[in-house]
Simulated assay, not measured.
Amino acid sequence: MALPIITADQRLREKQGVKLVLLGKSGIGKTSQLKTLPEGSTLFVDLEAGDLAVKDWRGDCVRPTTWPEFRDLVVFLAGANPALPADAPFSEAHYRHVCERYGDPAQLAKYDTYFVDSITVLARLALIWAKTQPQAYSERTGK
């Protein structure tokens, strides 16, 4: 097997992107920034289930309601991490399982941007899920 060298032309043709987080007090217009994005190529990941600030935005959206649903969505959108073992979230096996459920990832080709709202709700979903895991209980303290 030859060394997998990526040529400059191949590297320059790769799709590039920016990961950005908007932070600020409630009500200053973070969610409203969705209205500045193209409706045809942006997927709105609506964790707040129908935010009023963007009710007139006419783009596509998905509404995961639990941490595992969000985690499945992320691996579907971003693909597998080949460095992870098969039983780990975001592994190749996890990705294949999610593709069986959601269908062909080619359906995502139209999206250049994923807009997730809100990080506060996402943190709450992750904490709720974490509290249900066996590792969250201490046999020593009973807490």
Rank of each mutant, 00 (worst) to 15 (best):
G59W: 05
S138I: 05
D46K: 08
D56F: 04
R96C: 04
G50L: 12
R11E: 13
V54F: 08
A93G: 05
L125T: 01
K35R: 15
R101G: 03
A88P: 07
Q10N: 10
A123V: 06
Q135A: 15
L52C: 08
A123E: 12
G50A: 12
E100V: 00
D112L: 08
S118Y: 00
V21K: 13
S138W: 05
H94G: 04
L12A: 13
P89Y: 15
F70I: 05
E39G: 06
P82I: 06
C99R: 01
R96H: 05
V121T: 08
Y102P: 01
L47D: 03
S138F: 07
E14L: 09
D46N: 11
P89H: 15
D72W: 03
C99N: 00
N81C: 14
S118L: 04
E92V: 13
T120W: 04
R101E: 06
Y137V: 07
A49L: 13
V116W: 02
V21S: 14
I128N: 13
G50Y: 14
L73I: 03
G79P: 00
L127F: 11
F115H: 06
R63H: 11
F90M: 15
A130I: 10
A78K: 11
A80C: 09
V45W: 01
G59T: 09
S41V: 09
D46A: 06
P64K: 03
Q10M: 08
P82Q: 09
V45N: 03
R96F: 06
R71F: 09
I28L: 15
